[in-house]
């Protein structure tokens, strides 16, 4: 009987986090902020609901399968979120009004590559003149 109350606690906690994630998906203004809301809330909510189901299913094999599914979701969801963020950044998806970048990685890389190319070209030009 105590296990049922613990399971209800975990299930309702996971439900709360899923509510917060979907409200973030609807209300936030940008791709990056939507991923910021969902990458955390969805993983935590799913994990808590699965822990609540583990308290209910009192069988070793099914608990093992649920642990496997929970490990899969906990590893897959942040990886997919990271890849979506990288794809959005590489495609140049615009950000919301009033937001700014602190450290632009791609721009700094492009600047460094351009400078290196210029130094190489000047070296080759010097060699060809002599």
């Amino acid at each position: 009987m105590v296990l049922q109350y613990v399971a209800v606690f975990f299930l309702l906690g996971g439900f709360f986090f899923l509510i917060v994630g979907v409200i973030g998906l609807i209300r936030l203004p940008d791709v990056y902020t939507r991923m910021h809301a969902l990458g955390k809330c969805d993983t935590l909510g799913t994990g808590m609901v699965l822990i609540g189901l583990m308290f209910l299913v009192q069988d070793v094999t099914n608990i093992t399968k649920l642990i496997l599914i929970m490990a899969m979701i906990i590893t897959i969801n942040p990886v997919v979120t990271h890849l979506i963020a990288k794809t959005a950044y590489n495609r140049g998806t615009p950000m919301a009004e009033g937001s700014f970048l602190i450290n632009d990685y791609v721009a700094s890389q492009r600047r460094r590559r351009k400078r290196q190319l210029e130094t190489n070209l000047s070296k080759e030009g010097g060699e060809s003149q002599t």
Binding site: L18, L25, V49, L50, L53, I69, I84
Partner: peptide
């Protein structure tokens, strides 16, 4: 990419519905 994110959420919800 918004659609990809929404599809990811729907997938997770369907997995939870199957388990419950």
């Amino acid at each position: 990419l918004d659609r990809v994110v929404a599809m990811n959420v729907i997938t997770t919800n369907v997995v939870l519905i199957i388990l419950i």
